[in-house]
Design a protein around this nucleic acid. Structure first.
Lengths: 195, 195
DNA sequence: TAATTAGTATACCAATCGGTATACTACTAT
DNA sequence: ATAGTAGTATACCGATTGGTATACTAATTA
């Protein structure tokens, strides 16, 4: 009945997009519901109709934006090639997807590092593990190609995720552009640490 | 007149200690001033007497606890030895100091990853850079011993900090103890990535 | 056509937010 | 002795917090 792209300009999507931007700029706790609905040009009951609470809004945000992010990373694991090649592609894709969704990505990193008993951390925790599992899957599939790395899959996934996250965090803070972040010598620096 | 350790049980220190604990548990924005002063067993005007605002409280907290943390790391840079030896000691000291001040350390990591325009991030930013500079100093002094690493000091410092931070974040989350975190094979895994 | 449902707004709630005006006490310095 | 200062409490401030009761409209379904 409706193949049209209605789904792009609904109030629900406007709320998600505005919440994402505000959470990125100032953080989940610092942004009030009123501010979100003002930015989206609607009123509170509309937000509480779609998402049952502020917490529910964050959960939906993480679910829709986050799984899209992880999906793109998972596709990269399927590909075949030498360890160094697939690693290089994986790192490139990770940074590429992260920079393309810079605001969501930084928001997610912030949530992953939030305080233990913070409401936002509790919502983000499953995705922190999902990301870790995706990177672990990558190493479980490919580390077997290099004897020295066998058995180190857990550490390697923590280490790679840590390096890339901090690399992006610091260099976004420095105002570095997507193109520079993806330059060959920068990718190569990261790759070289894992060969 | 007073060589005694008065300075450990003053209201000021009680406020700092309680704020640190609460910020660690639930985050700066999620914790109200009232809750802090209740935990410290005093009232608001006392807090506003010592620190001019909630923001000022955080600044003092970072200044006193943070500089102590960085000081212990800086001492390690002075020491001499082969690249691999000083690196191993540096990593060991970093993790050791971080685990001994686990609550403060996790709070700091959380602040470093906070949203750009968040009040807490603005207070933490100088210390994010200070930490980066300390690690950079380490590599500027020692990377010269290994030709392959010369010129990579900036990347190396980001990378090492990223690995250790994420290593501690994930393994604290997993409930891993200080002893395990400092086990030789775990330290060696990290060190091996930087030789 | 009648009944139901999804979506939205007006107007409100108690509770909490960060912060302060005022006044008191206890100590210090003159 | 007296003036000043540091520290502390009672009681309050306006603003904002997350959330909702009620009512309306527009579209769908029976």
């Amino acid at each position: 009945m409706n193949e049209e792209n209605k789904y792009e300009h609904t109030n629900r999507d406007k709320i998600l997009a505005c919440a994402q931007k505000l959470f990125y700029e100032r953080g989940y706790d610092a942004v009030g519901v009123q501010e979100i609905v003002d930015a989206a040009g609607i009123t509170k009951p509309t937000m509480y109709h779609y998402f049952k609470s502020k917490h529910g809004l964050l959960e939906n945000l993480l679910d829709e934006y986050g799984n899209q992010f992880l999906g793109e990373l998972e596709k990269e694991i399927e590909k075949d090639g030498s360890y160094e090649d697939v690693l290089r592609n994986f790192v490139y894709t990770y940074i590429s997807v992260a920079t393309k969704n810079k605001e969501f990505y930084l928001m997610a990193i912030s949530l992953f590092s939030s305080a233990r008993d913070n409401e936002a951390y509790i919502a983000a925790k499953p995705y922190l593990y999902k990301l870790l599992f995706v990177v672990q899957d990558f190493f479980r599939k490919n580390a077997s190609k290099v004897e020295r790395l066998v058995g180190k899959e857990d550490f390697l996934s923590i280490s790679l995720t840590g390096v890339i996250n901090y690399y992006l965090l610091v260099n976004f803070e420095r105002g570095m552009s997507e193109e520079v972040l993806l330059e060959e010598h920068n990718i190569e620096d990261i790759v070289n640490q894992f060969v």
